[in-house]
Structures are given as structure tokens and as C-alpha cells.
Design a protein around this nucleic acid. Sequence first.
DNA 1: TCTGTCTTTCTGGCCAGCCAGCCAGTAATC
DNA 2: GATTACTGGCTGGCTGGCCAGAAAGACAGA
Lengths: 206, 206
Amino acid sequence: MEAQSKPSPPAKDLPGEKAERIIEAMRQSVARRGVAGSTFDHVAREAGVSRGLLHYYFGTKERLLVEVVRREADLRFDALDRQLAEATDADAFLRLLQTSVDEMLRTDPTYVTLTFELFTLANRNEEVAEGFRDLMQRTRKHLADSLRAKEQEGVLHLTVDPESVADVLFSVGDGLTMRVLAEPDRDFGPAISAAIRSLRGLLDDA
Amino acid sequence: MEAQSKPSPPAKDLPGEKAERIIEAMRQSVARRGVAGSTFDHVAREAGVSRGLLHYYFGTKERLLVEVVRREADLRFDALDRQLAEATDADAFLRLLQTSVDEMLRTDPTYVTLTFELFTLANRNEEVAEGFRDLMQRTRKHLADSLRAKEQEGVLHLTVDPESVADVLFSVGDGLTMRVLAEPDRDFGPAISAAIRSLRGLLDDA
DNA sequence: TCTGTCTTTCTGGCCAGCCAGCCAGTAATC
DNA sequence: GATTACTGGCTGGCTGGCCAGAAAGACAGA
């Protein structure tokens, strides 16, 4: 995307730093308060701009949420790439996965909460649905590409196609994270171990 | 707290058939319109009662939603028991799982949509959070008990504790269902096969 | 450098619509 | 006649979107 090169009348791609602040404020607000609770009033205050500016940039709440989805995708790619870079065998790969999940849960479960918020909204809004679909597709493709690369390096030996592995991996990740968030006092160690044990069957035929 | 519990000291549980209709109407409405879109006006009309009756029985929207969660749990138990009853070995068990998931997706993905709706609401309402926690716990326990029974019958040979198996199984189920709903045109056959293949590692050490 | 004009960015008051909850009152039941 | 079951009009509060206009730049000419 082009930065704030010029103010284009038709499509205001990225008006600049204030738009960024708004999107990020909305993202955090949705994770904390939900879509319904994220009023323009709240978000504007947290972004340090006026309410009107949200309409000036994005028009409607839905379009702002689509931008939130887009940003979310970018953030996930960064996180994914950072995590997978250093794996040198299937065990290391799965260990990295586990620690990154642990860390995510301890520090900021925004991702998963936001995923579910956006999914529920997507059921009722085609614009958001399209964005969400794109988020799922791109995330899957991204991980699948990484898996393919790891396979060529000899780190992994996939027993099924990489896209399917990505689907299963993200699915069990989302589902478990939801459960951990729902029952924070329960020890999910055994469940996470079981998940990893079952995933190994897809990553390594050794 | 006990505003509407006057009529029957022994049990405020079931005011009757109208309350049932309200709960079921709310359940379906939440799955279709989301929590925010499920106004008392809509739900009352669909249940064939007046708006005021919803307040008369449940007081607040949250308390009505807690009843929805409770009902959801009951429905799930029925479905689970029906599905697992006839499995005679691990393969049959997993095949049953696959067909029941397929059928659920084709006919009525209410379950999963509702799960996510309630989860997002639970983030903001302690009453609902408690109900949701209970839903997760009871569902897990229920499947774990079935798994234990199947193990004693010699149908399955679990490689980890049944509760963890249940967690992983439901997690991957929820996550995949969400993805299927988000991308209805994509063929998830390979992904579902991959999921089942990975789950086999937990169900059968043969 | 100053000044005036035009454009873009940004503000916040306003409004119409919606909703949960309240409550006064009516119907049903005993 | 009294208690319980039920109704629906009302309201206060909130929200997204609109818009008139204020600030902030941009630019030209003197």
C-alpha cells in the first residue's frame, strides 16, 4: 500500500497516522468490549480524535471494521513468520508452537477474541464477511507456504497437503484458546499436549 | 435477584411452556441475528407472547441468555449420546464423527454460531461467563464419560486422558466449523480428513 | 514576509431511530 | 375477592450518521 503520498479523492487508502490510530483503537476496543460496545464515542476518545473523523475516514462502522480485519491479518503474518523462522525439526516446530500459544494466552489473547467477534459479525454483514474470508484464506496460505518451505528444507515431512495442515492447526488453536479463556482456572496443559501429540501425525511421518 | 421467583418457592426452574418457547425463540434468534440483534420485540413476536412476558419471566436479557446456554447444553448432550451410541470401533467412531459434522453443517450450524456468540458475550458479562463455563465443562465431562465407557467396552484405546481428548475434539470441531461457515464455497474435505487422521492418534494406539 | 483565497482536514452539536426496562392496568385463575 | 399471569404504552438513554462550519494548510501575488 502507498503511504500518505497524496490525498486521493476517490479512495482514501491510508490517510495517514490518524487513520492508523483509529484502526488500532478500534481493534483493541473490539477485543475488549465487543463490536456492539465499541461505540464511535469510545474509540474516538481512545484514538485521540473527534468522533466525526471516524466517519470522515471510514464512512460507516462496518468499513472501519473491515480495516481492522486487514490490520489483523498483517499482524498475524508477522507473528507467524517470527515464530516459524527458527524451527529445525518437527519437535522444535511443535515446541515453538506451544510456547507461542502459551505466551499469547498470558500476554494478549486479543487475536482469538477478535476472531470470534469478527466471525459473528460476518454472519450479518457481507462486507465484513468478505474481509473475514480473506483473513482466513490469507492466513492459511501464509502458513501453508511456510510449511512447504520447511518441508523442502527437510525439517518437516507432511503427511497431507499443507493447506489442510494449516486449517487443522489453526482450528485446534482457536478452539483451545477459546476454552482456556472461558475457564482460566483450569489446567489445560494435558489438553495442549494432547493437541500437539495429535498434530504430530500430520507433520512427521517418521 | 429473585424478583420473579415468587410463584413457586420450590422451583423457579420452569414457569411453563411459554418460557420454553421464549428460550427456544431466543436461541434461534441469537444464532441468526446475534445477541445484539435479538431484541425483545423480535423474540417475543417469534415466541408468540408479549414483550413484557420476557421481563416477567427472566428480568434481564442476560438472564434469558443464561437459560439459552443451559438449553444448549441439554441439546448437545442428546446429540452426542445419539451419535456415539452405535460406534463399535475407533474407525466407526471417527466415521460417525465425520458424518455428524457433515450433517450438522448441511442442516443447522446453529450450535457453533451460538457458541461463538455466547463466548463473545461472556467476555463482558459475568453471569453469561459462568453459564458458558458450565456449558464447556459439562460438555467435556459428558463426552469424556462416553469415551471412558467406550474404552471399557474395548471399542477405543485412549492414549491420553479422556477430558483432554474431549477438549481437542471439540476444539478442532469448533474451529473447522467456523472456517467452513466462513468459506462455504471451499472444499474442506481434505481438511476434515486431516483432522480425523490427527485425532486417531488420541483414540487408538493400535 | 504578509495577506487573501481556496482546499483539505477535522470538529462537535444535532437528530431520528432503537432498545431494555419499567409499570399501570387487564385478563385469567382459584 | 384475591392472587397470579400477562400485556403493551411509555421513557430515558444511547448510537450511528449527518452536516455546518471551524481550523489548518496550500498557494499565489505583492
